[in-house]
């Protein structure tokens, strides 16, 4: 049974398990859908992440007691449904093109060397997994994807880079992600993706949702440039 904890004066947090799994992810997805379908005006936001959901409410309209009741109802009502259905049924499959290596993937060679693999093999292993979107946060549109094959899982670099370019595809331990915008970052960069992960002015603002599945697909420089132009002109 998931546990409910206080978070702040306007929020409670629900823990669905100790670690992410298909059943935890699908329960989270069902739970969030259930609450959204209720259209309670005092529920302001739901932040799902790995194995938890932070429920933010409007404390001028409700309180912890009532919010907890709604949350309990939602947990119970979705428990069975989430067990029956296969994992990720609710989420969509998103394919993201990646131009691996070169100046856009400065850490690819190092990862390959450390893993005693070739750069192409690292890229292949990176493409071989269907990743779950476990969380979106840190920055707008930054999706935490897992889990990376342990053969290429690499710890964060010791000194974060001052500027990681927008679209950089990176690995940190068993997680991988696409940087939605240029930012500071300590992940290992292996390539670049031309699909915008965040656009404040165009829909969809963020192409991924928690619970979606992501597959990466290798493209060459020409394809990358062509796709980049395409998104630019959109």
């Amino acid at each position: 049974m998931p546990s409910i904890q206080n978070a702040g004066e306007n929020s409670i947090i629900v823990y669905f398990g100790d670690k992410p799994s298909n059943s935890v992810s699908s329960h989270i997805a069902e739970f969030c859908n259930y609450i959204k379908m209720k259209h309670e005006t005092y529920i302001k936001d739901l932040i799902s992440s790995y194995a938890s959901v932070l429920v933010i409410f409007d404390p001028s309209q409700t309180n912890h007691l009532i919010a907890t009741k709604i949350v309990k109802n939602a947990i119970i009502s979705t428990q069975e449904a989430s067990k029956k259905e296969d994992s990720h049924k609710k989420g969509k499959l998103v394919q993201l093109p990646v131009f691996y290596g070169g100046i856009n993937g400065p850490d690819l060679e190092r990862i390959a060397n450390e893993a005693r693999l070739t750069a192409d093999e690292v890229a292949e292993i990176h493409q071989s997994v269907s990743y779950s979107v476990y969380a979106i946060g840190f920055a707008p549109g930054f999706a935490y994807l897992g889990e990376v094959d342990s053969k290429i899982a690499t710890p964060r670099i010791s000194t974060p880079r001052k500027l990681v370019p927008k679209g950089s595809v990176a690995i940190a331990d068993k997680q991988t992600a696409v940087y939605p915008s240029a930012s500071l970052g300590g992940w290992n960069i292996i390539g670049i993706c031309p699909v915008p992960m965040f656009d404040a002015f165009q829909k969809p603002h963020v192409p991924l949702r928690v619970g979606d599945t992501v597959k990466f697909k290798s493209i060459d420089e020409n394809e990358f440039n062509a796709l980049k132009m395409e998104f630019k002109n959109k």
Binding site: G8, I47, Y50, V53, L54, A135, A139, Y144
Partner: peptide, 26 residues
Amino acid sequence: LSEGICLGAIQIPQDGQPIILMNDRQ
């Protein structure tokens, strides 16, 4: 595991010195 952070949350990183998360928090 990473989880949602509400306004005013007090997080304690490994060095033990608390950080209060304000309006522009992650």
